[in-house]
């Protein structure tokens, strides 16, 4: 199978701390990592390759240092990488990002499957996966928690829904997004790490992928960020002190007053 994964470099959420005084996020010194959901995508792609043969290509759009996540992905078993990096892409929203990634994926030649993580943990939009599918004109299945079977140009998957899951058959090529339940991403391998170390990544520019200027970056983005702010701290915080019995009793009274009990 010829499989592509879309990945993103994000700040490591487990390292992000909140400044207690201001209530804002401290981003300084926060390491950049592979978006955790994308690790599931890479793992699933590598497993499919191990089972069915073929190759795995990883694509990312971002600043030059985003190449680091591609190295991580190679250490996990991806064969080829593509870094799409150009100042012209800055400020892209999900529309422009989907368009740009779509162009990059088209350069990879015929694909059987594109896998994306459910969402990136910095933006949490979950819109790029379906956007890429539309740009490629491919069928799409979201929130895949298991790939049951691939055969005869079709793939059978389990799609997570609110109260269970659905078994869905989709014709290939297709685009899917995957959730945490699908697998446990592997550690990088030593050989993969050594391969990644010597990897030279040549970024592709807007021109290289043949992007139209009015469809990329800030200019190509229908949405505009008007304001970014820290959520207002909650007021009227209340503490219940005392012995456990007393705390429990007062909590119960509170809930009664709120008509919850």
């Amino acid at each position: 199978m010829n499989i592509a994964v879309c990945v993103k470099q994000v700040p490591d959420a487990s390292e992000v701390k909140i400044d207690k005084a201001t209530g804002t996020m401290v981003r300084e010194g926060v390491p950049a990592v592979l978006n955790p959901f994308d690790a599931y995508a890479v793992e699933e792609a590598v497993r499919l390759k191990e089972k069915h043969g073929g190759k795995v290509s990883a694509v990312t759009m971002g600043p030059p240092q985003a190449g680091e996540v591609l190295k991580h992905v190679v250490a996990m078993g991806a064969d080829d990488v593509m870094l799409i990096s150009d100042r012209a892409f800055a400020g892209a929203d999900t529309w422009a990002t989907s368009y740009t990634l779509g162009l990059g994926l088209k350069k990879l030649g015929p694909l059987d499957l594109v896998i994306c993580g459910k969402q990136a943990i910095d933006g949490d939009t979950a819109q790029v996966g379906p956007g890429v599918a539309e740009n490629l004109g491919l069928p799409f299945v979201a929130y895949v928690r298991r790939i049951v079977d691939v055969s005869g140009g079709k793939m059978r998957v389990e799609r997570l829904i609110e109260d269970g899951y659905e078994v869905v058959e989709v014709s290939l090529p297709a685009v899917i997004t995957v959730v945490k339940e699908i697998n446990a991403p592997r550690m990088p391998s030593l050989k993969g790490k050594m391969k990644a170390k010597s990897l030279e990544i040549k970024p592709l520019s807007a021109q290289d992928i043949g992007a139209e200027a009015e469809k990329i970056g800030l200019a190509g983005s229908p949405t505009k960020v008007m304001k970014v702010f820290s959520p207002p701290p909650k007021g009227n915080r209340e503490k219940i002190d005392g012995a456990p019995e007393e705390q429990a009793a007062r909590l119960a009274e509170k809930l009664k007053a709120l008509k919850i009990i």
């Binding site: 592997r186 550690m187 990088p188 391998s189 030593l190 050989k191 993969g192």
Partner: peptide, 11 residues
């Protein structure tokens, strides 16, 4: 299994 996948058994 993890150690195997990481190529450490063949160091």
């Amino acid at each position: 299994k993890v150690l195997a996948q990481a190529d450490l058994f063949g160091l």
